[in-house]
Nucleic acid binder design. Sequence first.
DNA 1: TAGATTGTTAATCGATTAACAATC
DNA 2: TAGATTGTTAATCGATTAACAATC
Lengths: 223, 223
Amino acid sequence: MSPLDRLTPQRPLGQVPPERLSIGVAARLSRYLQVLTQARKMGKETISSQELADYTHVNSTQIRRDLSGFGKFGKRGVGYNVDSLVSQIRKILRTAGQHNIALFGAGNLGQAIAGSDVFADHGFQVVALFDTDPKKLGKKVSDQLEVRPFEDFRKVVQQEEIVVGVLAVPPEAAQEVADELVANGVRIIFNYSEALLSVPPGVTVHSSSPAVDLLYALYFYLA
Amino acid sequence: MSPLDRLTPQRPLGQVPPERLSIGVAARLSRYLQVLTQARKMGKETISSQELADYTHVNSTQIRRDLSGFGKFGKRGVGYNVDSLVSQIRKILRTAGQHNIALFGAGNLGQAIAGSDVFADHGFQVVALFDTDPKKLGKKVSDQLEVRPFEDFRKVVQQEEIVVGVLAVPPEAAQEVADELVANGVRIIFNYSEALLSVPPGVTVHSSSPAVDLLYALYFYLA
DNA sequence: TAGATTGTTAATCGATTAACAATC
DNA sequence: TAGATTGTTAATCGATTAACAATC
């Protein structure tokens, strides 16, 4: 802080620092958290900013700075304690709680998602799996989960607080499901289908497109 | 360009401008390409920088500038022709050709990937699908593809030019497969397992982690 | 102690944004 | 023509990088 800053404070003295992270910081912290969670699973107790950089493709200086903005979490010469860094980042991102997901589509992709740990590891619980195929209805996909008819969705969204809708449906069905989600107040949609979705402002669509990463990886391979 | 730059040219006069794109530009162009490909499938003939911005979450001015750096591809008052923009970006990324992929793991995720259009749309062809489970061997997963024993991989990599290895295996098997890929000269690995992989320098690992996007989407939802 | 790694600064580079003339 | 959207500039902001003292 320069002396001038003290003369012209950005906010009233005594107030807490800005609570809202920038998109970049929030995105990077999420990536650190993903790696840390996995590192913990693999029994790693400490991790250096350089290791984090190798796994996340984020510069190690950037990582140290991102973290040091919130406190002195590391130990010089040693690195960061994995466990405690996980809790610290969860606190910063305020994602320590449990959040409910509804999953649409019980095909290969839907079942792969339902059976994966990725969401569970970060406090997201798939509470319902929907499909329209009568042959799939009632099928047990995991201990907790069986395939329910799409029509049940309204009921579910009223009973459980669904924060995210995940689409693993064929592209031609995606917009219809998205509309239904929006109509029932869901404001985050995770789109694994290839369809381009139209949603009203205030609703966020995240599209996962592995081919994109492959394209630019290939560019640097060929160039 | 400042006058000083003309006195101290970065490269010999008369040579072509730098061919290598920055990582940021290459990554963004890839995202535009993904959206354009899908827009074309949906019968869209023109698209504006604003529409591209809505779908990619990249600022529309940024998009126009990225594109105008390579030519005047748009029409004022109209937008960009989807078809011709696809060809232009492919030319820039030099990914117009066909490239071969080997896919590991024939579980739900592996079968979902094998059956998807994402890779095919961008010129990536899955030429072989491997698994170690004897019960799955020989199973037809698509018209072109049947499950082969992991041991066949060396043969395949010698016969076909495999540029990318895609891992859809359980986390405990991922490192072993990665090592085998590296040993056989594959330098791009796409990791859908949750394992953290160690690879030598020169090999690129891309890890797809949907939960990461969800985490930071949630942050802005809660904040 | 010696080696390793954090926390932090300063310089550079690239991304973002607003604004607007050009033009379809 | 009128409306829309590109191509481009300029100003600001955030990311990247190198470097290094502090310190475990």
